[in-house]
Amino acid sequence: MKKMVKQMNKPSIQEDRYAPMLSPWRVKGKITLIFFLIIGLLFFSSLQTGVDLQALISGLSNMNQIIVKLFPPDPGIINLAMDRLIETIHMAIIASTFATIIVIPVSLLAARNLATNLFVYNITRFILNILRTIPDVVLAVIFVGLFGIGVFGGIVALFVFSLGILAKLISETVESIDMDSFEAMRASGASSVQAIAFAVVPQVLPQFTSFSLYVFEINIRASVVIGLVGAGGIGNLLMQQFSFYNYDAVMMIILIIFAVVVVIEYISGKIREAVI
């Protein structure tokens, strides 16, 4: 009796023998094993990559030196940077526009519920999967190699890069639509183009707009990065100043990029909220 009262006063899971245990030992053992695996891998990779916390600490304690290196940002570069920034935005606009146009047939081919020919569907899927594994900068290196240093190679690289992302997002949206209206239209004699235009398009249009804006956002960021490898725009200027050890100018350019990315993300986020 006394024991029971004691138990009632102290209701804790550990003492209640009748409650089923949430993690039996087998699960616990597995989780512990995975945990040690993760930690072990962490130590191994830290050793391999030469993680040097001392370098970070001494680097951070030399902060005043670095601040002297990076600050004050050089305002002399602003005019040039603005010119290049506009070039970057233009690259992103053109690449996103062409990607959103070309993605329409591609995503229809890569959507399982609309694909009539499984062979074409699989091939499209396969190519898109490969395309998405290639980092944007590597694409830029290849297209700059093909088309020479300048804006054009960058635009082609951005186009291919955003096509990969957009086609996946949109084909998944197309796959998730309600097929009843499509089938009803087909059954009442509409051609497949008519059925797509009136049954599929209205269902995917909001997502399509939203994803296109999202890809434009990604493209702004990517076009900064691909400039580093010679594809034009503000990234090119950044790399130039970086290789001259001109850190004041580097900092100024980074601040400008930061401001633009924040502003464009804000605007595009507002538009996307309004659309969906």
Binding site: A55, L56, L60, I66, L70, V225, Y247, I254, F258, V262
Partner: peptide, 16 residues
């Protein structure tokens, strides 16, 4: 808002 490669540039300046 910072692309990774730009952070990388900053950290190359900091830790080499």
């Amino acid at each position: 808002a910072f692309p990774e490669i730009i952070l990388a540039i900053l950290f190359v300046v900091v830790v080499g």
